[in-house]
Simulated assay, not measured.
Amino acid sequence: MKSVFTLITLTLVWLVPLSAIPPQDERPPQDRRNETRMLHHLLQMEQQDLTALRKTIERIERMTPEEKALLRERISKLEKMKPERLEAMREHFESIDPETREAMHQRWLEMSPDERRNWRQKLHDLPQEERINLLKEQGFLPTPGKPPKGAKPPTIPEE
């Protein structure tokens, strides 16, 4: 019994210093691999996509922490949305002619973060018919006489 105890003790004494030595990782750190992968992706992008990405990054840099939190919240709602609802929204968006979409996008970009927040709240508070009329008046929907080509997105019950 003494010899078994002595053997276990000697083994532990021998292993303890080995556990104190950190293992040498031959691979680059995870951040470096991601950085290289991202750089490779950026180098393959078209100039106009890089310009749009830079503008987006600059817009994010100008956001306050509260604005960033609100944006993260809205994005998480999209990520949690049912796939069929999300697909219907995409189809509806793609059914809008590119010129109108671009005008809508430019109109949105011209708004300050406070104006955008107020706009979303105002839309949320309006009944559906008034909301559609307001969107048309403000240039956020296609002109009358050009019905959308895709399916109408299913409605989500308001909270």
Score class of each variant (00 low, 15 high):
A69G: 08
R116K: 15
H124P: 01
L18K: 13
L7W: 14
P83A: 09
L42P: 00
R120V: 10
T56L: 08
E84Y: 03
I156E: 14
Q106M: 11
H124F: 15
K68I: 10
L39S: 06
P113G: 02
R59P: 02
R62Q: 14
L42Y: 03
D25K: 10
W14I: 13
L12I: 13
S76D: 12
P17H: 08
E130G: 03
R74E: 13
N118W: 07
I75K: 03
N118Y: 12
T9Q: 10
M38F: 08
N118T: 11
L39F: 01
R27A: 14
D114F: 07
W119P: 01
H105K: 15
G150K: 03
Q24L: 13
R117G: 00
P98S: 10
L53C: 04
K80F: 11
L123K: 05
Q128H: 15
K152G: 04
R120Q: 04
L123A: 04
E79L: 15
S95K: 03
A103M: 12
M38I: 12
N133E: 12
Q44V: 01
S76V: 01
L141K: 06
T36P: 01
A69M: 10
M111P: 02
A52C: 03
T64N: 04
S19D: 02
Q138D: 12
W119R: 08
P157E: 10
E73Y: 08
M38S: 10
E46Q: 13
M81D: 06
E110Q: 14
I57H: 05
I60E: 06
T56W: 06
E130F: 09
L39K: 00
R85A: 07
I156P: 01
E73R: 08
E129S: 15
K136V: 07
P127L: 11
L70V: 05
I156C: 06
I96P: 00
T6K: 14
I57T: 07
E99M: 10
T6D: 11
P83I: 08
G139S: 14
L43F: 00
R90P: 01
F5N: 09
R120D: 02
E115I: 03
E61A: 14
K80W: 11
E67S: 00
E159R: 12
P29V: 06
L86S: 05
G139Q: 12
P154Y: 02
T100P: 00
R59M: 09
S95P: 02
P157I: 07
L43V: 02
R120L: 15
I57M: 12
T51S: 07
D49K: 09
T64S: 15
D97M: 01
Q30L: 10
L10G: 09
F5P: 02
E66N: 09
E130I: 07
E115D: 14
T64M: 03
D97V: 04
P28M: 01
M63D: 01
P147G: 04
T155W: 04
L70R: 14
H124K: 13
S3W: 09
H105F: 13
I60Y: 06
H105Q: 14
D125M: 15
Q30D: 04
V4I: 11
F93E: 02
R90M: 13
E102W: 07
T56F: 08
D125Q: 15
P148G: 06
E35S: 08
L53W: 00
I21Y: 12
Q106P: 00
